[in-house]
Design a protein around this nucleic acid. Structure first.
Lengths: 245, 245
DNA sequence: GTTGTAGAAATATTCGAATTCTCGCGATCG
DNA sequence: CGATCGCGAGAATTCGAATATTTCTACAAC
């Protein structure tokens, strides 16, 4: 065995993953976690040396990430980390509200007993997990993030469109990126659980309008908080992105 | 000059494209055009020999296509052409109607003079291009397809969300694939231009409800026609897809 | 007949070495 | 002085050759 040493299992089914997929997931996590925002340009060689893989698999990973909008691509000029901006955050939030509203309405309209149970379960878990990491207050609790994401995914999972679910997922990733970036110490106190409970209860009651309103409020509040932080950290010309081209 | 010989310009800006991008576009066209539906499994070696490129660029192209849902991927087992089905067509159409409705409403709500002009222009061009190819009746006129796509893109272009436009584009690609597949000789006569004119005129008048209704009718009629053909060609077990795994 | 299995063949994946391209810099030409 | 042309250095891209994995086949055991 010469290369590809760190591959045990990928999805629990015992199927071995490719190096390309491994790099993809790692790099994606780093991108979303805001671990490498400092450099706008992403040199292949740099990724190769950091993640220990050849150019080919790295390049595959980069291509996937570019297709998802996390990276940009210029033929013959490599990849770059997609820049962030206030207007992009607005557009993202706007789109997210549109899609999630539709998804939630459909989900409620076609809800099943199983969906209700999953939702109750997701809400319960959300109540258990704490928002902030117990160790560092400057980063969110990864466990909470996981549960949180599951909650929102379950919420719209009955909408009868894997396309729509996928799109919402994708937007969710980008929103997560902004949230991570804007996360240096909590600002306003916020009762996360109450917000989610309001959404879930309305949904379970079949009150689509109420659920949608609560969901949109939830997203917009989050966006507003991000925006505030975003605007603060913008003027000092901090370690944000650099030369674009 | 040893490899990468067939690269003049890609986007008209004089920028040279990568082999990966070239293969991506070609393969994508073939996929959408229904040129190679016969084999569900897509061997890298086959693509390499057909498109004249090494494994690395081909693989990149495959990865991009997989991210768009045109191909599927199983780590260590390669890529396969995404199967088609009646239920998938339904889901696709449903999602498309949801997204395009929202996009159109927003587009109308935020329309500008330039948007109106582009729309008028797109409609005019649509009237000029004929639906069927002059040569072969079994394939659609590529010029018409181009103009048609432009029309629909323009229609929603003022919605203030590149995300939404992108999603609609993606769904549009998949719908196109189904349309191509279901295209062996015209069935019902259909006044395409009248349908599009109805949409455009309502949109230009600011009549969102009317425009949306016309647009949805348009999509659903198309889907219904595809579905009909689809069901016909299903029983004979024609040269459709083969072994899945 | 079914199940299991070693080995071969076919494929997919990855690497390391070219090859090609871009970008910056200094010289040269209007 | 501004614009253009060469000319490397540095990157990106691609190839051809390994390396790994899956799939197929023949054969044996139950």
């Amino acid at each position: 065995m010469t290369y590809g040493a760190a591959n045990l299992s990928d999805d629990g089914t015992g199927a071995k993953s490719t190096l390309a997929s491994t790099v993809y997931h790692q790099l994606r996590d780093d991108l979303l976690g805001g671990a490498l925002e400092t450099e706008s340009k992403l040199r292949v060689e740099w990724v190769v040396s950091k993640y220990g893989a050849g150019a080919s698999p790295v390049r595959e990973a980069l291509n996937r990430l570019a297709s998802e909008g996390l990276l940009g691509r210029h033929d013959q000029r490599g990849f770059f980390i997609m820049p962030v901006s206030a207007t992009e955050l607005e557009e993202l939030t706007r789109t997210r509200c549109w899609l999630e509203e539709r998804a939630l309405r459909e989900s409620i309209a076609h809800r099943t007993a199983e969906w209700e149970e999953q939702l109750v379960l997701a809400l319960h878990r959300l109540g258990r997990a704490s928002r902030l990491s117990s160790q560092s207050s400057s980063s969110l609790n990864p466990e909470w993030e996981k549960v949180h994401r599951t909650f929102h995914r379950v919420l719209i999972s009955a909408c009868r469109s894997h396309w729509l679910v996928g799109f919402c997922d994708q937007l969710s990733d980008h929103a997560y990126r902004y949230r991570q970036m804007a996360n240096d110490g909590e600002s306003i106190q916020r009762d996360d659980f109450a917000e989610h409970r309001l959404i879930a209860e309305n949904a379970l009651d079949g009150n689509a309008d109420g659920a949608v309103q609560a969901l949109i409020d939830h997203y917009q509040l989050t966006a507003a908080m991000c925006m505030e932080r975003f605007r603060q950290g913008e003027a000092p010309a901090g370690p944000g992105q650099r030369a674009q081209r």
